[in-house]
């Protein structure tokens, strides 16, 4: 400010009151705003400490799940350990320095089984959610944007949606050989329907905005309108939906396996572990076999859920203050 004052004092009245040349670029540049949607979303998302903690925790737990088998001193999740002195299996050992989470009823290491199970479950969740999201987006976008197909798709939706999902999943896993692939297939078969409907509703809201009419006037083909105009607008909502459906899929894997229709017993998964734990939970000394896997399931699903909600808040432009 003092600089300005000095400059003013140095100038004569005549200089001060002389016209300056009109510069149109100066006039054009007056209203530049550096606002960016994604930058602001990210900033708001990361601004809360609790959100950052949950995010780091989730990343750490997922990283650990995949790194764990390669760490030194880890045991195989399927090997049955035998006490060399007695020649008998280490059945239901309480957690100790050798077996960190103890052993199960047939002498397998619970620690490595839990991480191996988390791997399997996460694999199912990610593949199932990813594929149902892709199918859901494709079908939902066409359903929402192409008017003539709306009626047909809605009827198909009504038919599929009226079959109870759990029954359908049980039926499929019952018919097909129980395996990871079967489970993913069963999840996809029911999950995409909800996703597609959700996308369709979002698309219908933005379908008749002026910029889409403009694209139609320019003769842009439907496929490019969907990819360039519609989908980028709903990315944040889709991301939220992904974050929220992962815990849902984990939950149904646990449930299906728990009722004995999911994965075969020899494949460790969180569902299998909880099922095993349930059988012995009435025996107070063996409750740990249920508690440990249950804690892991809860921690992962709750984290995903919390992050999804935080992201929903952050992606709302009204919160970009």
């Amino acid at each position: 400010m003092s600089n300005v004052m000095k400059k003013m004092n140095n100038m004569s009245d005549e200089e001060l009151f002389r016209f300056i040349e009109f510069d149109s670029s100066r006039a054009e540049s007056t209203a530049y705003s550096g606002y960016s949607y994604w930058k602001s979303t990210f900033k708001v998302f990361m601004s809360k400490r609790s959100t950052r903690l949950i995010l780091y925790f989730l990343i750490a737990i997922l990283l650990f799940t995949f790194v764990q088998p390669y760490l030194p001193g880890q045991k195989s999740p399927t090997e049955i350990f035998i006490n060399p002195e007695t020649g008998r299996q280490y059945r239901s050992l309480q957690p100790n320095s050798e077996f960190w989470f103890g052993t199960n009823t047939i002498g397998q290491d619970l620690w490595s089984r839990i991480w191996s199970g988390t791997r399997t479950t996460m694999l199912i969740a990610v593949i199932a959610v990813a594929s149902s999201t892709i199918i859901g987006i494709i079908i939902g976008a066409i359903w929402g944007y192409v008017r003539v197909l709306d009626r047909l798709f809605t009827e198909i939706y009504n038919v599929i949606n009226n079959v109870p999902t759990t029954v359908l999943r049980m039926l499929i896993t019952y018919i097909m050989k129980p395996s990871v692939g079967t489970l993913i297939f069963a999840m996809c078969l029911t999950n995409w329907v909800g996703m597609a409907k959700w996308i369709r509703n979002l698309i219908i809201i933005i379908r008749d905005r002026e910029y889409n009419l403009a694209s139609r006037c320019l003769g842009t083909p439907t496929r490019r309108v969907i990819v360039k105009n519609l989908l980028p607008q709903i990315v944040s909502v889709v991301m939220l939906d992904i974050a929220l459906s992962i815990p849902g899929v984990i939950g149904s894997e646990v449930f299906l396996t728990y009722i004995g229709l999911g994965l075969p017993v020899e494949t460790p998964s969180l569902g299998n572990l909880i099922d095993e734990g349930r059988r012995v939970m009435m025996n107070l000394s063996q409750t740990y076999q249920l508690v440990f896997p249950a804690i892991v399931v809860a921690a992962i699903t709750v984290s995903f859920y919390a992050l999804g909600n935080k992201f929903a808040d952050a992606s709302d432009p009204r919160n970009h203050v």
Partner: peptide
């Protein structure tokens, strides 16, 4: 606009 408009 005059010079002074930019300053004060």
């Amino acid at each position: 606009a005059m010079q002074i408009d930019l300053l004060e």
